[in-house]
Write a protein that binds this DNA or RNA. Structure first.
Lengths: 213, 213
DNA sequence: GCAAATTAATGATTTATTCAAG
DNA sequence: CTTGAATAAATCATTAATTTGC
């Protein structure tokens, strides 16, 4: 979709002028007298209207609530995908970074349609729900002394095995601040369909920063 | 500092390649007897170790904690950028979707280095902190009637202007489930420096899903 | 006046909660 | 009811602003 660059500037909002001084209420009087960072500060090249209410114009789009995703709305993982993901989870993977997610998704794509975000969400949800489950079990039941002896067999083994691979992942330590990579993506959902010749979807996310700040 | 595209995936991780099926340590027999929903269910084409502990091998990388980000580690917005963002916020924008973020970032890029995620974060944080602030003020103080008369002059004007543009955004309604677009991006942090001829950073996020599930 | 130490803001992540598809 | 998707809340972590000691 070459939608991009839609209304590029309907000027008329606040082109109150370049040099601006720009609203920015005080916010912080101790502002470090901003450097001449901008070549041309015609701040007002945005079409705010479009931003704020893309629907304001002629309603050529349907989409009351549910968009028109042709195929399916949400990811429906196959058994293989789940298997791999669980294996990774059991292996200690908690919050994969961007690269890892990409790779995982690429692999899982062999077994069914999938996107990076699905992988991300899966880990998020699985982690959270495993925790819930654990918490619930620890609270509600103190009965059944075997609980610590029978069920966790596999767990124990697994953990032991894994211990060599990674050290204790976290499983309980909140906040580890480990990876800096960002596991998300802009990809606009639209690219859901099998996408035939969608190769050149360069999108030119960032035209090119005119300067280095 | 032409770090860019540093480890571009140190290939050698899992280029086991598509058809795969072998190699790889099976890691765990506990695969749930997956049903035949896949052409070939040799699930085990993942190098879990690499995923879990990329550092396990020879530590040829430095980066103890702080990666080698040459310039700066986090986005430092310029006054113009802040101004635009606040205006958009005041205009009612709460959680821009992917396209909007792209456009905003593209515009803000004129005034300084910025990425899409920065825009996203800014809105998240700003919204949350505005809410905090409001809550705090509503609790601790009922005094000072001038509060609504003196300071917010600009605010009032602006708001009035904006009110016509959008209707009350939400400001308080938790969960609106409005956009389906996903405002994140994989972009791996590395592309921080001014990046000279980095045009073709196609990255081909997802090679191409081999099948439509 | 300057630079280290301290504090205040705020960018970036992770976790918790909620909504809704199947 | 299960679970994928999305948002909000909590909080970690880094930078800018201010203070302090010289």
């Amino acid at each position: 979709m070459g939608n991009m660059k839609v209304h590029q500037l309907s000027r008329g909002f606040w082109e109150h002028e370049p040099s601006l001084s720009l609203g920015c209420k005080r916010l912080r009087p101790l502002a470090p007298n901003l450097q001449p960072s901008s070549p041309d500060n015609t701040v007002s090249s945005l079409d705010l209207k479009s931003f704020i209410r893309p629907e304001s114009g002629p309603r050529n789009r349907d989409s009351p609530q549910v968009e028109t995703h042709p195929g399916g709305t949400r990811w429906n993982p196959t058994q293989e995908q789940i298997g791999i993901l669980e294996m990774l989870y059991r292996g200690g993977m908690r919050t994969p970074n961007a690269q890892q997610i990409e790779q995982i998704a690429a692999q899982l794509a062999k077994y069914g349609k999938i996107e990076g975000k699905n992988v991300f969400y899966w880990f998020q949800n699985h982690k959270a729900r495993e925790r819930q489950k654990m918490k619930r079990s620890s609270l509600g039941l103190s009965r059944c002394a075997t609980t610590r002896n029978s069920a966790p067999i596999i767990s124990t083994i697994t953990l032991d095995t894994r211990v060599e691979i990674m050290e204790r992942s976290d499983e309980d330590s909140p906040y580890k601040r480990k990876c800096k990579n960002w596991p998300f993506e802009y990809l606009e959902e639209e690219s859901r369909s099998p996408c035939k010749e969608e190769e050149n979807r360069t999108l030119e996310l960032f035209p090119l920063h005119p300067e280095g700040r």
